[in-house]
């Protein structure tokens, strides 16, 4: 095994399991649908709330997608092979998270304009929402990968993983929705986007190391 063959195989397995990607996307749409149904379908409520609704749904959908990211590798012995390969676990984690990110976020960005319409998001703010998702979601994936690695050996680790990880998502959600709100009020939003990018970079640098420690501890 080397990094290249691993990355290729990760892509292949994600492409073979398109249903997982589709499920995350459907979950995202489902959560968004709950807000007009559960709170208020009028454009007076939805239009200002759209950024927040989209981001809450994104965070939940990503948690769902990330939660099981190592499950199969754990069950079929692939994680043991990671350790035996002598390759850096952090880099393997990075490659895996990157592939996962592309597989979930690209389709999500594709359906976003449609959902933005349904939530009466002003057209001028759509670009900011897209940018915030592009810059903010890497942090969600990388932080989530730590929780997934910690709970991979537990049979019912999903809820525990949510409890561990969701509080850490708060800054991303705050700054992302802040950027969208600023754009809706026609104020400057580049600062918030820059912070999102910075958080993602920090998460990118530190999370693979933490996830690697957790994977080592999980496999025994």
């Amino acid at each position: 095994m080397n990094y290249r063959s691993y990355f290729k195989s990760e892509w292949l397995s994600l492409l073979r399991r398109k249903q997982d990607t589709l499920n995350a996307l459907l979950f995202f749409v489902m959560v968004i649908t709950l807000f007009p149904l559960g709170v208020d379908p009028s454009s007076e409520f939805l239009s200002p709330a759209a950024g927040g609704i989209i981001w809450c749904a994104t965070a939940l959908a990503i948690l769902m997608a990330v939660e099981g990211m190592y499950k199969e590798d754990y069950n079929d012995g692939s994680l043991e092979q990671w350790l035996a390969s002598g390759l850096s676990i952090s880099i393997l984690v990075f490659l895996k998270v990157f592939a996962q990110w592309v597989m979930v976020v690209v389709p999500l960005l594709l359906v976003l304009p449609l959902l933005a319409q349904m939530l009466f998001l002003p057209a001028s703010a759509l670009g900011v929402v897209m940018w915030s998702i592009l810059l903010g979601t890497p942090a969600l994936f990388f932080i989530g990968s730590i929780g997934a690695a910690l709970t991979v050996s537990l049979r019912r680790g999903a809820v525990l993983m949510l409890l561990l990880i969701l509080p850490l998502y708060i800054p991303v959600i705050v700054f992302a929705t802040g950027a969208v709100r600023a754009a809706q009020m026609e104020m400057a939003y580049s600062g918030q986007l820059a912070i999102l990018g910075a958080i993602s970079l920090v998460a990118l640098a530190l999370s693979p190391i933490m996830a690697a420690v957790s994977i080592r501890a999980s496999v025994n």
Binding site: I146, L164, L168, I170, F175, M210, V213, S214, A217
Partner: peptide, 23 residues
């Protein structure tokens, strides 16, 4: 190990969370 990872990650995040919430 797990508890050490969670506390360390939490401590790195805590100032960011505080700052974001204050903002």
């Amino acid at each position: 190990k797990a508890v050490a990872v969670v506390s360390l990650v939490g401590v790195i995040n805590l100032p960011i969370i505080k700052y974001s919430v204050e903002w």
